[in-house]
Design a protein around this nucleic acid. Structure first.
Length: 205
DNA sequence: GGCCAGGCACAGC
DNA sequence: GCTGTGCATGGC
């Protein structure tokens, strides 16, 4: 059996279904919340991101139009709990402006290169948006993924982002739901590993 | 009280 | 090309 699939299955048994990005559905469309969250969580604890999301909801900044037309100082104040708040307010505004000006159905039609061209959207954030908001099978690579799979000896952990992504995508069925759950499970597992220092995945077979 | 979190851009070599 | 640094809050 495919080694990666078997790692996924073990993680699923250990940690259960993660249901990442449980959307509050307060944003319109609900997918926007994923995009906003993906930007706000850059190098930031998710708990802090939730505070910022709640501020946006309370202030009724729940559509791309509303966020794009919010003045920077107010946006900064709202996203403050998520840290790096000046950058993030600017990034959010630029991203939402892009969404507003997008000709076609953003969530259906946006391409990876278009996302990467937006200031503040790097590869991981772009892939998170593509995977979790657009339901497209892009495998998200983050520090946790690098650490875990280099520990298992499957990658070096030092490779280029797209090379690491290619490693997973070439060995897994192109299934967005699988990728979503896998990435979430990896993050959960690594958080726990960090606390316990106990590897819970056998290296054998 | 120090360390870190679901990164990214931009210097300066 | 690639290595270093700034960005910043809140949880543990």
């Amino acid at each position: 059996m495919n080694r990666l699939v078997s790692v996924h299955d073990k993680l699923l048994k250990m940690h259960g279904k993660q249901n990442w990005w449980p959307m509050s559905r307060k944003f319109k469309p609900a997918e926007l919340e994923i995009c906003v969250g993906a930007i706000l969580t850059q190098n930031t604890n998710w708990k802090n991101v939730e505070k910022a999301l709640n501020n946006l909801i309370k202030a009724k900044k729940i559509t791309a139009e509303q966020i794009a037309s919010t003045r920077l100082p107010l946006l900064e104040k709202l996203v403050r709990p998520s840290g790096f708040y000046r950058q993030k307010a600017k990034r959010l505004k630029e991203f939402c402006t892009f969404v507003v000006n997008f000709r076609d159905d953003f969530y259906k039609d946006v391409a990876r290169e278009q996302l990467l061209a937006i200031n503040g959207i790097g590869k991981e954030t772009a892939d998170s948006i593509l995977l979790y908001a657009c339901n497209k099978p892009y495998f998200v690579i983050d520090e946790y993924t690098r650490r875990m799979f280099s520990r298992l000896g499957l990658i070096t952990g030092e490779e280029d982002y797209d090379k690491a992504r290619g490693f997973f995508e070439a060995r897994l069925p192109k299934d967005a739901e699988l990728y979503k759950e896998f990435h979430a499970l990896v993050v959960e597992h690594e958080k726990r590993f960090k606390k316990t220092k106990v590897e819970m995945i056998s290296k054998v077979r």
